[in-house]
Simulated assay, not measured.
Amino acid sequence: MTATGSKECPNESMNKVSHDQIMGMDVSRDWLDTYCLPDGLQLRLPNTADGHVPLATVARKRHALVCFETTGGQEWRL
C-alpha cells in the first residue's frame, strides 16, 4: 500500500507514465488521428500494424498517457 492507501501498481512501466504528456486519439477503420498535449503534435497514421509501430514509439518516448475514442470496435487492433 502507498501513503494514500491504494495498492501499488505491479507494472513498473505504469509508474513512468507522465500525465504531463497526453496523447488523445480518434480511432476509425482506416486512420488513427492523434493529438498530443501539451505541444500540439498531430499525427495521422493508418490503423494497421505499420501505423501502430510509430504510434507506440512516440508514446513510449514521451512516457505519455494514451487515451482513445472509438465507435464500432475499431480499437481492437490497438
Rank of each mutant, 00 (worst) to 15 (best):
L43Q: 12
L32D: 01
L37N: 00
T2M: 12
H19G: 06
S6M: 07
P46S: 07
M14L: 13
L55C: 09
D20P: 04
V27R: 04
L45V: 03
S28T: 15
H52T: 09
D30P: 04
S6D: 08
L41N: 03
T2Q: 14
D50S: 15
G51A: 06
S28L: 04
A56G: 11
G72D: 02
F68K: 09
S6C: 07
C67N: 09
V27L: 03
V66E: 01
G73I: 07
M1Q: 09
H19E: 07
E69L: 03
L55Y: 07
S13N: 10
V58C: 04
E12C: 00
G51H: 07
F68A: 03
T4R: 14
R62C: 03
T2G: 11
T57V: 10
P10T: 07
L45N: 01
D20M: 01
L65H: 12
M14Y: 11
F68N: 04
D30A: 12
G73R: 06
W31K: 08
S28Q: 09
K7C: 01
I22G: 04
S28D: 08
A59W: 00
C67Y: 07
P38N: 08
K16E: 10
T57L: 14
V53A: 15
S28A: 13
M1D: 05
G51V: 10
F68E: 01
G24T: 10
T2F: 10
M23D: 05
R77W: 03
M14A: 11
Q42I: 05
T2S: 14
R60T: 13
D20H: 06
L45R: 02
Y35G: 01
N47K: 07
P10I: 02
H19A: 12
T57H: 15
A59T: 08
P10E: 06
V17A: 00
G5K: 09
D33T: 10
N47D: 02
D20N: 10
Q21N: 15
M25T: 10
M14R: 13
D33Y: 00
T71E: 15
Q42K: 13
E75G: 13
D39R: 11
D39H: 14
D26M: 05
M14W: 09
D30G: 05
A49C: 06
D30Y: 12
R62N: 08
P38V: 02
E69G: 14
M25E: 08
W31L: 01
A56D: 06
S18K: 04
P46V: 00
I22P: 03
A56K: 14
Y35V: 11
E69K: 08
R62K: 15
N15D: 12
H63Q: 14
P10S: 02
P38L: 02
V53N: 11
E75A: 13
V58A: 02
P46C: 01
P38G: 00
H63Y: 02
S13V: 06
T4L: 13
K61P: 03
T48V: 02
C9Q: 11
